[in-house]
């Protein structure tokens, strides 16, 4: 019903506008085309000026209304660099934007057709053109300089003490692998991927670095103020690890591992206070169109203190033991439980 109304209203508007347009053409012919033309010229010139003024007010209003909703303070060290670059660029382009738009609409209004004035024959002025080639060139050199400087800082080598987490995107969710005590991720091979055999990451069990790797889905824990290096993979199609609050982003490409690193600077609890949102969590969004469930590909990051993190990780069982319960020295009794679970599953 609603759709019908919308279509009906649109159709009606359509008809009315068309009738007005047709009528105005007849009126123009009746009143003398030249006179009518001059009048519309005036109206349009005025409208252009009005558009400029109202538009500028609108830009200001829009800014006032929406600036509170953009993300606020970045939650990582790299985020600070990104935001700084952003503000430099906003400042420079903002100046250019205001000047050129004002010139454009003001000239249009000022130099509207008039019988009193003749247009000024002004085909070129090399000096002027040189000036406005050089000034943008210099400005852009500044932007490129800062940009590349920050870019190398962000994409540079991760510090030695960085913790490593492997992130794997799949349709439609995230998988994480922690290297465990030894700090080294074990080898994996995609042909070994088998959720049935409790090996969703495709780890190679003969590699002993794999024996303490912890695997989990959807939730990642990080330590505040400790650099973290993400090794990013994808299982099926290209995904993207988007971390809006950390101002970081990197594609997950099947077959080619990618990487990024940053240092989270606020814990989740601190962010709850900062944003005033009681349900605040850091989210991983998939930013690269990956299929029907793209919009729902959400992961959660919990940033916490080292103690909390250690306690959390200690409670996790390495995937090696999950997949090979017979190798689990600590719990022979859970072994039987697992078997029961496997049968049930």
């Amino acid at each position: 019903m609603q759709t019908f109304f919308i279509v009906a209203i649109l159709g009606l508007g359509f008809l009315i506008t068309f009738q007005i347009a047709k009528a105005s053409e007849y009126v123009a012919v009746l009143r003398g085309e030249e006179k009518a033309r001059k009048q519309t010229n005036k109206v349009n010139a005025f409208m252009l000026l009005a558009f400029l003024i109202i538009g500028m007010i609108g830009v200001y209003y829009c800014n006032e209304k929406l600036k509170g909703k953009i993300l606020g303070e970045p939650a990582s060290d790299h985020g600070i660099l990104v935001d700084r670059m952003l503000y430099i660029t906003i400042a420079l382009t903002g100046i250019v934007f205001v000047i050129t738009q004002i010139c454009l609409f003001w000239f249009a209004y000022k130099y509207q057709e008039s019988d009193k004035r003749k247009a000024y024959y002004y085909p070129h002025n090399n000096k002027l053109e040189l000036i406005w080639t050089v000034i943008p060139a210099i400005t852009l050199t500044v932007l490129v300089g800062f940009g590349i400087f920050y870019w190398y800082k962000i994409t540079g080598k991760a510090p030695e003490n960085a913790m490593i987490v492997e992130v794997t995107g799949k349709q439609f969710g995230w998988e994480f692998r922690y290297p465990g005590k030894d700090g080294v991720l074990g080898k994996k091979y995609f042909k070994n991927v088998s959720p049935e055999k409790n090996n969703p990451a495709g780890q190679l069990w003969e590699d002993k670095y794999n024996h303490d790797d912890v695997f989990m889905e959807q939730e990642m824990h990080l330590v505040v103020n400790k650099p973290v290096k993400l090794v990013i993979n994808a299982k099926d199609v290209i995904h993207d690890v988007g971390l809006a609050h950390f101002r970081m982003k990197m594609d997950a490409v099947p077959g080619t591992p990618t990487t990024m690193w940053f240092t989270p600077t606020f814990t989740t609890k601190q962010m709850i206070e900062k944003t005033g949102k009681p349900d605040f969590v850091y989210e991983i969004s998939c930013d690269q169109m990956c299929g029907k469930g793209h919009y729902s590909m959400r992961g959660v990051i919990v940033v916490e203190t080292q103690e909390e993190f250690d306690a959390w990780l200690a409670a996790k069982k390495p995937q090696y033991l999950v997949a090979n319960p017979d190798k689990d020295p600590a719990a022979v009794k859970t072994d039987t439980l697992n078997k029961v679970a496997a049968v049930i599953n």
């Binding site: 010229n41 010139a45 130099y111 004035r117 053109e129 060139a137």
Partner: peptide, 28 residues
Amino acid sequence: LLTLLIAVPSAIKVFNWLTTLWRGNIRF
């Protein structure tokens, strides 16, 4: 570097359009 270079010819074009309007006798 190469990408931001494009802004230079674009800027030239914009300024030239503005100057074309300047002191014209514009029919809308």
